[in-house]
């Protein structure tokens, strides 16, 4: 993926998140956060500082559009910080080195799912704890994290599949 495509993807995810998904509420409060796909899909070769700055900027833009001051920034940053370690973890057993970009084709469906799942759980945990910031409501918070993470996970996997299909048909 080149830079232009990434910028296009960023804008697309922003629009989908702000104008569609932020208005979808499963069971009243479950709100998918598809924009995390942007952090997940960044090339593996991206330097550390660029990864963190990208995450910071992505989160900040989300905060600007959702009235939530800096909680998206902090949680996206946290997800980006954990990303290299998680990516190394899921690609360790396989023959591919950790330099391959995360996608179905490169690291396989199972590894991709584990990788996305861990990052999404980390991101959502940070997001909901920062938002609620009360330990008296911990059971409710955990159930929110879990339920929202599942929905986001489904959206992210669909996102990966669609992008890959598109890229595949273009190269042919």
């Amino acid at each position: 993926m080149n830079l232009l495509k990434l910028i296009f993807l960023f804008l697309l995810l922003l629009l989908v998140q702000v104008f569609i998904l932020n208005h979808i509420h499963f069971r009243g409060y479950i709100n998918p956060q598809i924009y995390i796909l942007f952090i997940l899909i960044l090339p593996a070769r991206i330097p550390g500082y660029a990864l963190l700055l990208t995450a910071f900027f992505t989160g900040l833009v989300m905060d600007l559009f959702t009235d939530s001051l800096a909680i998206h920034t902090a949680s996206t940053l946290f997800a980006a910080f954990c990303r290299p370690a998680v990516l190394r973890l899921v690609t360790a057993g396989s023959k591919q080195d950790s330099e391959t970009d995360p996608s179905f084709g490169s690291i396989g469906g199972l590894s991709l799912s584990i990788y996305s799942g861990i990052i999404i759980i980390l991101h959502h945990s940070m997001l909901f704890f920062l938002e609620i910031f009360r330990f008296t409501e911990i059971a409710q918070t955990l159930s929110r994290i879990f339920q929202s993470a599942i929905i986001t996970f489904i959206f992210v996997i669909i996102g990966f599949a669609l992008l890959e299909k598109r890229a595949g048909s273009q190269s042919r």
Binding site: Y49, L52, F56, A74, L77, F81
Partner: peptide
């Protein structure tokens, strides 16, 4: 630098959040 930059940016986010 990866860890230090993370701590720096995260602190910045927390300061914004506190305000």
């Amino acid at each position: 630098h990866f860890f230090l930059l993370f701590v720096l940016l995260f602190t910045l986010a927390m300061v914004l959040n506190a305000s």
